[in-house]
Write a protein that binds this DNA or RNA. Structure first.
Lengths: 172, 172
DNA sequence: TTTTAATCGTTATATTATAACGTTTAACTT
DNA sequence: AAGTTAAACGTTATAATATAACGATTAAAA
């Protein structure tokens, strides 16, 4: 028997209701502590993002927000996303122009994002050794770091087991 | 006396004419070897990208291409960019929606990009240790990698010496 | 030399994101 | 509690980035 050593983000395989609820409670606490407003709109957007572990597009969020918030326009979404990013509650996935809930809110935010091409789910890993190696490399370059984005595209462990999933073109 | 241990990409500080010419010759050789066509348009776009070490936007390239290629339209640029990326002759900077010449064409293409917020120049580093650490982390996640993008934003060594440059908000 | 595939021209449109400005709501001050 | 200030939001418009689709042309292969 093998032990599953990776998180299985599928709604069926983990208690996603609890997962979302934890994220929202954490967000509420952090915002309260920081004296910033997690307004109803911001809260709804965060909730929509957490509906899955997939990276979600701004205009997709807008479509999903509209029924709940008639007046919602692009600016509504982008303002909420800006706030949530500032507070470290979500990540922007640069290589997809999309967003995903941060599963380490309140902790450090230099993350490695593993982005599955098949299911679009994003797994976040703190990857201390990677960050240390990056820091060392950067020091050699005499560079002052403001932010790091490490995004890896491929096929997640779960999707590798599915039939008809292309796992080719792999590197490193 | 200190030794300069980082590349200085300023047009005044390195022989940029030679730098560009090397990139173009390498591109020509690689395309010939591979039996793919570095057409006049593709060659011009590559040349325009290499005008500097800054990340350059697609529509900026389009504006610069138009005088040389009357019929140039967005598709003209995006097709050329797609080709140049497929051939590993340029990098897409995901976090800027921009493009930069690849200074390691023909070699490995898993790179660390150091993007200066002040001068917009992009330095490319092969960062073997970083890549090894990423590979190890990914193996633990049971993930199959197709591509990696490691992008670091901050202030380059050159700009740190300039007056009035904000070097704050640094991390790691 | 015919056939096929690649490249390019062209038009249209989809997608992502921001600017600007007025109104409302919340927080702070007295 | 009333007045003041700042934050958040509504709204319109538009900028910036990117792709689809299809026909014409050019290059490569048979």
């Amino acid at each position: 028997m093998t032990t599953q050593t990776y998180p299985n983000l599928s709604p069926l395989a983990h208690n996603h209701t609890q997962c979302v609820s934890e994220a929202l409670v954490t967000a509420e606490h952090l915002c309260a502590e920081r004296g910033v407003q997690l307004t109803p709109i911001r809260h709804k957007v965060l909730e929509l993002i957490w509906e899955s572990h997939k990276a979600v597009k701004a205009y997709e969020l807008l479509d999903r927000l509209k029924p709940l918030q008639q007046a919602a326009k692009p600016a509504t979404i982008y303002r909420a996303l800006d706030f949530l990013m500032e507070q470290g509650l979500i990540h922007r996935v640069e290589s997809l122009n999309a967003f995903v809930g941060c599963s380490c809110s309140g902790l450090q935010h230099e993350q490695l994002l593993l982005i599955c091409k098949n299911c679009q789910e994003v797994e976040e890993r703190s990857a201390k050794k990677v960050m240390a190696a990056v820091s060392q490399e950067i020091k050699q370059a005499g560079f002052i770091v403001h932010s790091k984005a490490i995004e890896v595209h491929g096929i997640c462990a779960k999707c590798q087991t599915l039939p008809g999933v292309n796992v080719n073109n792999s590197v490193g």
